[in-house]
Design a binder for these strands. Structure first.
Lengths: 210, 210
DNA sequence: TCTGAAAGGTGACGAAGGTCACAATAAGGT
DNA sequence: ACCTTATTGTGACCTTCGTCACCTTTCAGA
């Protein structure tokens, strides 16, 4: 299947680069819920998402986690680029939320291709750019918005990304991802239900109107 | 003075690139407190700091501002790169905190040099990288830490960046930069004074022990 | 020296959100 | 059908922080 997906997901890459990726990259599979990388880990490669879906979290020393953004097929983990290049520990945690297939590009090729392939260079830079903007928008939310707005935004993102109005998740997990507590999330969800924005089910939230 | 500072501040750049920067770049001066760019503005160029000091803020629609990080001589504004490249409006505000001299590189050269000069390419990427990390650390603070810790961190950054133990600033301004309120900052500072961490003066804070 | 503006201090109060304890429901396995 | 466990609901309470009102101190300029 890799033979078909790489040109499809990365059509801007030169044929030769697509071939190299297939030759040098190592395909890996992760089951849903499996961690692709842990906070504190070193990188030896950068990762391109082939299919599935990945969520990126920030963690602090006390184990609090905090959802930042999604990575979709055709995207790369900007942090793995940062860390691989600087030989630094990972500052983030990545988790598969569907069964996910990635291709890992060893650091040395990543560097080599930067000079060799214009399209790779462009890809790396535009990856930084888009993640940069995600981070800014994340900062906006936690700096300027209340938990109610953040919850709505979270649900909206989930809805758009997963393309479904029925979100299969429990309140505790949402609380973790927003670095809040279950009771608070439960209360806010209840309020949203009263406003007709969602309908609550066990282990699921149905989006009505956001 | 530009003739000497560019090779000095950007020693990794090829001689030819240094010459091009001097030829194509436009030197601009900003007085302390002057804004280098405003939220909502379009970019036609990216900026390299030659001397002085610049602070980068995030602003929301209601005019709340929020300090993110410093830019020092030899550094570039990553956001101006993002925005210039994508023809997007600025999502940030930049303000000189000392009299500051910058050199503005028009967008088309920025792109051209990416292919032409390895060192420029590397510079752009490492600018993204370091700003990326700044943003992550900013997120940490607002997501996981209370105002007390954030205030200490703010003062520490100021102290390190300005290389002085006497910070000339009033409480209201700190409150603005942390998106808090004067009273809260005053109270926290008082508490820090009781713990012997700082000594408070009018329009100034003396760092004792952080 | 006087005075007004700026800066800082303080108490009261409220809202948001975190924590605790425990009740109510629902689902799945036996 | 019954029991166990996971999930959700709820009230009480606390802390942090923002806001308001008003006071005190400091300082620069008339």
């Amino acid at each position: 299947m890799e033979l078909s997906t790489i040109p499809q997901l990365f059509p801007a890459f030169e044929k030769e680069l697509q071939r190299e990726i297939q030759e040098q990259g190592e395909i890996r599979f992760y089951k849903s819920e499996e961690q692709l990388m842990r906070t504190g880990q070193y990188f030896r490669s950068t990762m391109l998402i082939l299919n599935g879906l990945v969520k990126i979290y920030r963690e602090d020393e006390d184990g609090n986690e905090f959802f930042m953004y999604y990575l979709q097929p055709g995207q790369a983990c900007a942090l793995s680029m940062v860390c691989a290049a600087e030989h630094k520990r990972s500052a983030i945690m990545a988790k598969a939320v569907k069964d996910t297939e990635i291709i890992a590009i060893p650091l040395n090729f990543m560097e080599e291709w930067m000079g060799k392939y214009k399209s790779w260079n462009h890809f790396v830079i535009s990856t930084y750019r888009s993640r940069f903007e995600e981070l800014l928008s994340t900062i906006d939310h936690i700096a300027f918005r209340g938990m109610d707005e953040r919850l709505e935004f979270y649900l909206k993102k989930h809805q758009e990304t997963m393309r479904t109005n029925l979100i299969a998740i429990n309140h505790q997990e949402i609380a973790n991802e927003l670095n809040s507590s279950r009771e608070v999330i439960s209360r806010l969800l209840k309020k949203m239900e009263q406003f007709g924005k969602v309908k609550l089910h066990r282990n699921a939230i149905e989006i009505i109107q956001l």
